[in-house]
Amino acid sequence: MCKAFINIKSIIFSKLIQKLKSLRSEKSIITLKSNNPKGSRRGINKIILIILIVSPLLFVFFTGYPIQTYRETQKNGVILSKRCFKVGELKQFIRCFQSGKRISGIHLVTDLQTKLSSLFPFFDVVFFGGIAGIVIGILIL
């Protein structure tokens, strides 16, 4: 059983290494170690470009979302409690960011994971797998 597991593992790893080698030979952006200075500069430029493309993800991960609610009293005296992040309202988003609580980093990931998995089993896996797939897809291209 253990031997079979080791065999499968070694097959998977050897395939992964082969794939990485083939990517190197295709001069993909993973190729950073290059004797050609022009090639390495191009690789760095590509990495900067990819960071720019995935910047919304990075920004959300590190800065997060404001989660407080704000209360608005209407003319008839009714108090409405609204979410702070009203989609599309940049000013409100910035104001809430400066003054209130926010959810970011691992907390945000865990919160999303819980909510997605309550919609349907494994939806969290598909969601985060999908995002990883997009990033890998850009890296390979």
Binding site: V126, G133, I134
Partner: peptide, 15 residues
């Protein structure tokens, strides 16, 4: 790889 990107974007929106 292009298909993989489309598939992943679709899957993310779907779930």
């Amino acid at each position: 790889h292009i298909f993989l990107i489309i598939l992943c974007c679709y899957a993310v929106f779907f779930v």
